[in-house]
Nucleic acid binder design. Structure first.
Lengths: 144, 144
DNA sequence: TCTTTAGTGAAAGTGGTTTTCAGTTTCAGA
DNA sequence: TCTGAAACTGAAAACCACTTTCACTAAAGA
């Protein structure tokens, strides 16, 4: 997975922000990772591309890019705040329980479930957070 | 919401554990709360029932009870680790965006979505984490 | 060039969570 | 009723992810 740099640059510019070398390193590190990365893991990975990068900048960059929609937060069972590239405007993630790989999917017709939940609880459902777990194709192959 | 104490006691006993006064205080505090509580909030709430309760014990108890299935972890947008009673073996939560109230619902037929995601990603889907957001009946009434 | 603002990293600070440790409580068996 | 083992406890210390502060640099526009 890689980023459409010009899109990110434009999104940043629309807010008066810039795509610096450091931000680029953070984006690249996350794009190159096979699974989701925590802030500290991003720091480690991005420093091979930009050694003078500071941890402060990583945290700031992750926040900016998430707000921009270029990244998505993933809740893991071990560490509950890690990041993956967000390619679609609205998408969800599947996490492989064996290798940790994170894949995005867009098919999420929640209407049936939201309706049922609304009826059961009396709530007016407005949003949802969904994350699936399972085995990726490679791990399934390796297991059999 | 209240706990079936004998059930919790039995579940603990099955592992050679006991339902102590402190653990009881933690359970009661969570059962009495209208919304999900973080560890620190549990500590505050439970100390009114058991003043000598220590924070260490709260953390330990939350872990034990979650593992036991008596509590469920909820991921919030602000603090990503808080706890609610788990009444059903498998259930999900709806969080009110206005007042923070957490309600459980059991209607979750994920087959359609899991199938679609499997087809899109090549994963074999085995589990899911779903959390809905919206307005509870009371807040909807108050808003209109 | 000059000015302004975004952006940066090191260091210090913060605060939630875990670990350690020296006890206390509980329970089964003698 | 004792006794020993194991569960259980809270205070204090340690840990560590994350945030704040601050002096500075880089870049864009006038």
């Amino acid at each position: 997975m890689s980023f459409d740099t010009s899109q990110v640059t434009a999104d940043l510019a629309a807010r008066g922000l810039r795509l610096t070398r450091q931000r680029r390193a953070v984006l690249d590190a996350i794009a190159a990772a096979p699974s989701s990365l925590s802030a500290l893991q991003v720091y480690d990975a991005a420093r091979s591309r930009c050694p003078e990068l500071g941890l402060t900048t990583v945290y700031r960059t992750l926040e900016v890019l998430t707000e921009l929609g270029a990244l998505r937060r993933v809740h893991g069972s071990d560490h509950c705040e890690s990041f993956v590239p967000a390619s679609a405007a609205h998408g969800h993630t599947v996490v492989c329980s064996a290798c940790g790989r994170v894949t995005e999917f867009t098919a999420c017709d929640m209407r049936g479930i939201a309706d049922a939940a609304a009826q059961e609880t009396g709530y007016c459902i407005t949003d949802h957070f969904l994350q699936l777990g399972g085995l990726c194709a490679a791990c399934r192959k390796a297991a059999s």
